[in-house]
């Protein structure tokens, strides 16, 4: 396959950026999207040019490191698929691919297609954990968890924190990520003691970095793990309860 790439090149966080055009030639339809970029980069390095900077780690769709806008869609045209799991057979010979980094004030561009997603860490720091006394590990299955609760928590815990939800959202909102991280704890018994403090704290840190949700559902469509916007409703409900409870307990 031969493809034309239009890639956003930006030397640094404050440098001006622009699209550059590259040809990707003799690409196997069975190669992954990132392998295709690797080949283009090898050519660039051979020509003494700066390779295209992009993020990747596991290349198995579970680390959440990779991600970019491909033809106006976060992680490209295939649903439920992270950029690394996208294969070139998804495209047609001769296609033009436009690659752009996530754009959000909470995700400043580092270089080319690489953005800094530390804002997600700030949200987790605000309450995306449970506080337990250390000691020897408790016996397994000591706390019974209903199957449907466990399933729901696992659905939420599928979030890999890639940032596609923010990137895809016309408002640059971080609701899907935050609600998934809340739900994976708030649906389990272990998450109950801190449920409402966690919800209030994480939502408020989220709002410092990202936009607000208008329920367009674009995040859900972009999410490589298929996280449901039902979790956003759950977060909204818990936040209201949190505001009320935390105020009464004041």
């Amino acid at each position: 396959m031969n493809l034309t790439l239009r890639v956003w090149r930006q030397a640094g966080p404050d440098a001006p950026g622009r699209f550059e055009t590259y040809e990707a030639t003799d690409i196997s339809p069975d190669s992954s999207f990132l392998e295709m970029l690797d080949l283009v980069n090898e050519d660039l390095i051979g020509q003494g040019e700066e390779p295209i900077e992009f993020m990747h780690d596991c290349r198995e769709g579970i680390c959440g490191t990779c991600g970019m806008m491909i033809n106006g869609r976060a992680h490209g045209p295939q649903s439920m698929t992270a950029t690394c799991q996208l294969h070139m057979r998804t495209f047609q010979d001769g296609d033009e691919l436009v690659l752009e980094p996530w754009r959000a004030s909470g995700f400043p561009i580092v270089k080319d297609l690489v953005v800094d997603r530390s804002a997600f860490d700030r949200i987790i720091e605000a309450g995306g954990y449970i506080s337990i006394d250390t000691g020897s590990a408790p016996d397994a299955n000591l706390i019974p968890v209903a199957k449907q609760d466990a399933d729901l928590a696992m659905d939420a815990a599928a979030c890999i924190g890639c940032g596609a939800c923010v990137a895809a959202c016309p408002n640059g909102a971080g609701q899907l990520f935050t609600s998934a991280k809340l739900a994976q704890l708030n649906t389990l018994p272990q998450g109950q003691p801190e449920r409402y403090e966690r919800t209030e704290a994480m939502v408020e840190v989220m709002e410092e970095h990202f936009g607000s949700c208008t329920n367009m559902g674009e995040c859900e469509a972009a999410c490589p793990k298929g996280i449901s916007i039902d979790f956003i409703a759950m977060m909204n409900r818990d936040y209201r309860k949190a505001k009320f409870r935390n105020r009464r307990s004041a």
């Binding site: 106006g72 869609r73 754009r103 004030s105 909470g106 016309p170 936009g211 208008t214 674009e218």
Partner: peptide, 27 residues
């Protein structure tokens, strides 16, 4: 909220967006 959302993406995408779920009404 609209102002907040504009600030959340000060630089818009340069390439054309291809919306999947966000319909005309919601946008």
């Amino acid at each position: 909220l609209t102002r907040m959302n504009k600030q959340a993406r000060p630089e818009s995408y340069r390439s054309k967006r291809d919306y999947v779920a966000a319909d005309f009404a919601s946008r």
